[in-house]
Design a protein around this nucleic acid. Structure first.
Lengths: 207, 207
DNA sequence: GGGCGGAAATGAACGCCGTTCAATAGCGCG
DNA sequence: CGCGCTATTGAACGGCGTTCATTTCCGCCC
């Protein structure tokens, strides 16, 4: 044993992340373990700790990858032509579609909890902030909001769509008529935007 | 050892649930273990399995308790006088306030994942459905929606408020201006309702 | 070519976990 | 008083994250 550079440190890193990702895809976060990763890559558990500081570190890097992949369809949704409201509906649908297509990876991003004593790393914060940033321009255009009002709208709408995905995915939305996710996000985005606009151009009358 | 009926089965059940709840409150779901519960109640781990089928069973019963407690302020919020829109804003605030006051218990209800092969028990589904049912009447009144449209509105709004609570609590809402939870839920509820109403009484003009 | 320094990888170890179950210890009854 | 019954134990199994002394091999220098 003790092969020297069967794989470079970089290769080993990718190997481990790939194995971890596959384990999460197949069995969820709960199916991930250092020993399972090691088995998959043909090393021993100890080796993982030469490349990552601990399992949380591995998970966070898998999550970073996932957020990068999630960004692609979301960015595309904003890039396409259409009214700002349509763009926002499309982004929400893209988010929901990703969550449905890769439920275990998506959930890993939001269900993984690290010890209360340690803060999440910047490279995760940055990526999430980057996703939220995608909707700011269309949202400003669709609502006419600026400053703090725009921040509020972004947070409310983003959280709302996120909540729809989460509750739908985990089956914790117990209702008689279960609605399709895209239908729910469309409904939330459309009506929320209409509501903000209605407030901007206040009571009753035309113009 | 082997004390006979120091506690009745029923007392033991409550003892275990109380200990489990306190452990979750103090350290989150991750701080819960059969051994920790046993230590707290002065029994051995094996005893827990005489009363509950496994740890998941314990957690689910703690969650049922939590949902019962969550129901109280929510029901009070609907009972108070005020417009239906105000009632809905109050329910949302009550939900958010509970989530903030008991973050670990609230999160346990939604982050606990049982093996994919087994379905959640009815007594959880029933309780969640009961909570959602609280908002149906005011929502019907506030929006004028009925049937499937009402279901859609309930699911969208409920999920939205839930998402705000979850992302705020887990600190995964990465934005420059972090808004207070109550502000966000008020904003979402108000604007969503306004949007649905605006659609019902369609374009521009008065009446 | 031979040997050596240093680094890569191992694998055993620690203390935790959920869960099971034969063995035991104490109560209630005859 | 002693027996049977059952509530409870505690040891055991396999798995977990993590650490680190030990081993194994590579590349370099002589």
């Amino acid at each position: 044993m003790a092969r020297r550079s069967d794989h470079s440190r970089e290769e080993l890193r990718d190997l481990i992340l790939g194995a971890a990702e596959q384990l999460i895809v197949d069995h969820g976060l709960g199916g991930l373990s250092a020993r399972a990763i090691a088995r998959r890559v043909g090393y021993t558990p100890g080796t993982i700790y030469l490349v990552f500081t601990n399992l949380d570190d591995v998970i966070l890097h898998v999550n970073a990858r996932t957020l990068d992949r999630l960004r692609v369809p979301m960015a595309a949704a904003v890039a396409e032509s259409g009214s700002s409201a349509e763009q926002l509906r499309r982004v929400a649908r893209a988010y929901a579609a990703f969550a449905q297509a890769q439920p275990n990876l998506w959930r890993a991003c939001f269900e993984h909890r690290l010890p209360d004593t340690v803060a999440g790393p910047d490279y995760i914060d940055t990526r999430i902030a980057g996703l939220v940033a995608l909707i700011m321009d269309p949202l400003a255009e669709a609502t006419g909001a600026t400053g703090a009002a725009l921040d509020t709208a972004a947070q409310a709408l983003w959280s709302g769509v996120h909540g729809i995905c989460m509750l739908t995915l985990t089956g914790k939305l117990h209702m008689v008529g279960g609605q399709a996710v895209a239908h729910l996000t469309d409904d939330l985005v459309s009506h929320y935007l209409a509501g903000v606009r209605a407030e901007a151009a206040p009571t009753g009358g035309a113009a």
